[in-house]
Every structure is written in structure tokens, then in C-alpha cells.
Design a protein around this nucleic acid. Structure first.
Lengths: 194, 194, 194, 194
DNA sequence: AATGAATGAGTCTTCATTCAT
DNA sequence: GATGAATGAAGACTCATTCAT
């Protein structure tokens, strides 16, 4: 598929808006086409099928997401700082794109199991980034040597995810970003070498 | 609806099996009816519509779930012990019912948003139980006085949920229960008064 | 079927009320049973099937209807008077039973064609009564000798029927009975020997 | 809906045939689609739902019907002639389209009440045309000055309708058109100033 | 005679996808 | 490349009727 053509992103952006505003099951292909100002059939010149729109959407947006966080993390020297900056940016990016937040926290999860497996592959990259920070923390002695990396990562990701989902379910009506340091501290406590 | 009639639970149990094995979107009413050995129409004597099956299923199973955990927690005297026993039982109950684990971790989340709002109301009870443990820990000085109860609860629930989901996504092929103490310790560290 | 048992009429009367208030297609057997204070299955001890309820209802009510009109007509000596009294009573009887009026003018006609053929057989008796009056009028010279009995009857029945239907469609909000003499006069003019 | 597309009328014509031959309640959408040589889904590109087919059918056919009668009436100078020509054409048009006659006289009336209300709005136009003829007759002195226009119209429409229905119920086996002058005369007599 | 829980056949409608233009 | 009219498969739900008690 021709990913660098402008219509490719045009359709993806339309999909984010339509899914966020109507929900996954009310996001018909024709609605996305209309929002993108293209004909229904045109969608199929850029995407294999409807699920492919969602996967591509997720891959594109998640790619940007991870790239931004990776960059932010790179600027910090300690694992603790990196973890904090990771949480901060996770919250910040989703705060700044309300449509995307709705799509990632609520709507994507309504897709069928097969679709979610593919989406998990996309998340993998993010999980590996978290793992890297954790491993670094163990290596430098910031985190306890006995730390179970997998469990710690699940704690980090699960906590952030649950926090963002709760915020979205409450219609994003409080400030998510300001929760970052507190969340980060609790997580760090859990891992600290003491 | 007539909840004490045997057919009510018969249908719910059939739904758990069918949804776990086929996924929510492939769990046709006729398939559930067949599994329950009743006619399609009989379903509608006990449930308003298809969504009502899922909500009822979740309410019944979650009711049992919370009751079991509440009982286990009641037998412990410190907040820390209570939290550990909560995590242990959360993992234990889902470990022992693989079908239910699939339904709660994957399939229920595919339901439409409106449905999920109702399901959240059912979860509420569980979240309140977690809150109680946290409040007790703050009161007794086990947990730091500055603990943000909401965030802490999101950390506990998010961590357990992500841990179970990862386990389910990996086809339940490792022992979930044995992770409980490690997960519990990390969480406790995060909250401890030091 | 056991027509002299009290439950037979009890069910018919319930059917009139339920059909008038809910419409033919919303008059489920279970609703009629409830209104009649009997079990669903009991209906089938007195009626062959659902259509049989409607046919029986119509036969019973139409029987009473024709009997009343026949009696009123019998008391008059000229064909003209008989026709007038027929129109008057047609309007009077339906005026006094609003539920029945709704059922005969609107709901019965929603039944399937086969059903309506049977209902027509029930009306036959009424049409024959009208024919008798017309024939008498021709015999006595009150009506023109060239009168086409069939057409004249269709004119009488069609006019009365349309008048009642219009009244029912207007929610029976004006006085139907007071239209009788005017309708009767117009019809008589059409038939008069001059 | 796109009324000038050929498929619109193609579907309507198919519906007339299917409804006339099978009855309204046995006229499944799939049957109409097959008769029209289109896919089931295509129906919904031109009609909101099944009821909309019937309403549209009636509106189109009734529109043609009234237009033809209006034209015929326009060519006559006296109210009496107009009334005669109206009856003649009413019978003639339905005589020449046996399928349409079955649909208008029997099947349309089986539709639910809500549907019939909409259909009545379509008939309105025809009733107004009749009213106009009657008013003209009164103005010119052809009809008696005391004529109750509403009742007279009900007599005209009711008589014609009953006459056509009886003819349809008798499988259209006699000549309807030849009854027109006799029916017209009887009606005229009823209204005449003498 | 009476009950009412259980049955299961039957249909409208949506919407992802195609393909002739 | 782009269009959008046409396709047709698929499934939840209702309700008249039955029959074991």
C-alpha cells in the first residue's frame, strides 16, 4: 500500500476522528470515506480492508508515540529520570490528542481478537522501550537486582493504561499530566533498591 | 428476570463457554442456545437481549469473584496481608476458570461502549474493596499518609489486569498464581511508609 | 368449540379491548389471555387459532349487530322508513361501542386476505338484509323499478362504511348518529321512483 | 430518495406485482428484489424500509391516478358530467391494472395503522378533487344547495370503493367499467336539486 | 379443564467490498 | 488513480402454538 501518498494519512486521520466520535462499531467505511473526502472505493486503494485501516492507524500513531517518548527518554541520564519522563510523556501525548486517547483506550479494544493480536505486535516496540529502562535501572543499581523485568513492565504499562482509561472514561475532565509525577514515584518506590 | 431458575445459570454458563471459544462477535445467540440445550427463544425468557446476557454473565461472575476475594481479605489482619491475599485470589480465581479468564480479559472489552459502562458499574464494587484496603493501610500507618488512594487503586488494578491479560494472551501457558507474591511486593513497596 | 361457556365470550370481549387499544398486529395472544384473565393455553381450548378469535369475534358481534338492526327494521312499514332506521341503527350501535367501532373499521381490515374472506361471509347476512329492504322498496314502488339491487346495496353499505371509517379516523370526536337522517335522505333520493 | 432513477420505478412496479400475487404480508423484501432483478440491499438505496416501499408505491400510483382523473374531469363543463367522468375513470383505471386494483382495494388496507395514516394523506388529494366537483355543482345549482359536501363525498368515495372492492373480491370476473353510468346516476339522483 | 414454560420458524436490514466506468 | 452504485451474506428477535403437569 502506498503509505507516503497524502491520501493514506488523510484517511487515517479521518478514521481517528470518525472512530473517536462514533465508536468503532459505528465507524462505517463510508463514514470514514466521507470524512476523508474520498469515495468509498478509494479506501481500498490504500487499505486491504477495514481492519487494515485500524491496524495501520494504530501502527502510524503508535510509531509517532513511541518515537516521541524514545526521544524524551534519551535526554535523561538515570533510569529513574527516564521512567518519570516516560510516564510524563505518555500522559502528555494522549492529553494533547483527545480523539486519539479515545481511540486507543476505548475503541481499539472493541475490535476482534485477531485484530488485537496484530495491535499487540505494534505495542511490542513500546514495551521493549520500557524493558530497556528497567534493565538499565537494574544494571546501574537504581532498581533492585531481583526485579522481575516482565512483571515490572506489566506494572508500569498496566498502571499508566488504567490511569489513562479512567481519565478517558471520565470524559477527560481533569488534568491527566499532573498525575504523572505521583504515578512515577509510586512505580519507582516499587522498584527501588532501597 | 428469573435468576433463581436453573436455566438462567445454565444459559450464562453456556455463554461463558461459547464466548471464550468463539469470541464475543462470533457468539451467536443460536450458538449459546445450543450449548445450553435450550431453544433460541428460551434465551429471551431469561434475558432482555444479547447484550443482557453479557452484562448478566459479568454481574453474576463478578459477584462471585468479589465475594470470594472479600472473604479471603476478611481473614487477614494487616492491610499488607490483605493486599497480598487480594492479588493471590485475583490470580487464583481466574487461573482456575480459563474460560472466564478469556471472557473477562479479552472478550468483554469488545462489547460496545454503552455495554462497557454497565460493566464498569459491576466492577465498581471490586474497586471499592481495593479502596478500603488502601484506606485501612493509610489509617494504620502501613502505607504512607500521602498516598493518593485513586492512583494507588489504579496501580493495583491496572497491574493485576495487565498481568492477567498478558497471561491470557500467552494462552495461559505459565503459572499465574505464582506471580502473585512478587506482584504484591512491588505494589506494597510503592505504597509503603518506609 | 364451546361457545356457551362463559370463557368463550370472556376471551372475545378481551380481544375487542386489546385489538382496539393496541391494533391488530400488536394484539398478541398472550396479551388477550392476560386481559381475559386466563392462561395463554386456555385460549386454545376455545379457539382453533389466533385467526379464529378474530373470526369468532366478528361473527358474534356482527350477529348481535344484524339482529338489532333486523329488529329495528321490522318495526317499520315502508322501505324508506326501513332504510332510514337501518342507517340510524348502524351509526347508533357503533357509536355506543367505540372499541368495536375501531375493530370493525380499522383493525379487522389489517388481517390477512384469507381471514377477510371469512369475515365477508359473516357480513353476508347484513348485506342480505339490505337487499331485502331494497327489493321491498322496488316491489312497493317506492324505489324505481330499474334499480340495480347489487349496486344500490354497495352504495348503501359503502356510504355508511366510509362515513363510519372517517368518523373513527377522526377519533370519533363528532356525533355520528346525527348524520344518519342526512345520509339516509341522500341514499333515498338516489333510489326514489320520482 | 432518488425518484427519477429507473430502479426506483422498477422496484415499485415489482412491488405491485409481488404484493398483488402474494399479499402484503407474504411480500418479503427479498421477493420484491428478485422480481425487480436487483439485490436485496439495492432496495434500501431507494427506500428507507419496507413500509416506505408501500407508501411510495401508493403515492406514485395514486398521483398518476388522480392526475388522469383530474384531466378527464377538466374536459367536462357541468358538475354532473364531471362526476360521471370521475366514476367512469375511477373504474376504468383500476379495471386496466388488475394488480394495482388488488393492491389498493385489499392489500394496502392490511398495512399497519401508522402506515394507513400516511396513505390517507395521499388520498386526500383525490378527496379534494371530489369536493371541488361537488362545490361546483352546488354553485351552478345542479346539486341542491343544502348538500352536505363532506357526506356527499363520503357517499361518492364509499360507493365507488365498495363497488371496486366487491369486484376485486369476485376475482374481477365481471365488467366493472359498465357499472359506471348506473353508479353515477344513482349518486347524481342523490344530490340533484330536482 | 387449566396452566405457562418452552419451542423454533421466519425476515428485515446493515455494511464491507467489488467493479464497470 | 478515482468513483459510487450495486451486491448479498448474516443474525437477533418475536410470538403463535404445544404439551407435560
Amino acid at each position: 500500500m502506498k503509505k507516503n501518498k497524502p491520501k493514506y494519512r488523510q484517511i487515517i486521520d479521518a478514521a481517528v476522528v470518525v472512530i473517536a466520535e462514533n465508536g468503532y462499531h459505528q465507524a462505517q467505511v463510508s463514514k470514514i470515506a466521507k470524512q476523508a473526502s474520498v469515495a468509498d472505493g478509494t479506501i481500498y486503494l490504500y487499505f486491504k480492508n477495514k481492519d487494515d485501516i485500524l491496524i495501520s492507524l494504530f501502527r502510524e500513531k503508535m510509531g509517532d508515540f513511541v518515537a516521541k517518548i524514545r526521544e524524551a527518554v534519551a535526554g535523561k541520564s538515570t533510569a529513574a529520570e527516564k521512567l518519570l519522563v516516560l510516564v510524563e510523556n505518555h500522559f502528555k501525548i494522549l492529553s494533547e490528542d483527545p480523539h486519539l486517547a479515545v481511540v486507543t483506550q476505548l475503541e481499539v479494544r472493541q475490535s476482534i481478537k485477531e485484530l488485537r493480536l496484530q495491535i499487540n505486535a505494534v505495542i511490542k516496540d513500546y514495551l521493549l522501550l520500557i524493558d530497556d529502562v528497567l534493565k538499565e535501572g537494574v544494571r546501574t543499581g537504581e532498581f533492585k537486582g531481583s526485579l522481575n523485568i516482565l512483571l515490572a513492565r506489566q506494572m508500569i504499562f498496566g498502571t499508566m493504561d488504567e490511569t489513562v482509561t479512567t481519565w478517558v472514561m471520565n470524559d477527560q475532565k481533569y488534568d491527566l499530566k499532573s498525575l504523572a509525577s505521583e504515578v512515577g514515584d509510586m512505580l519507582l518506590n516499587g522498584f527501588s533498591a532501597r
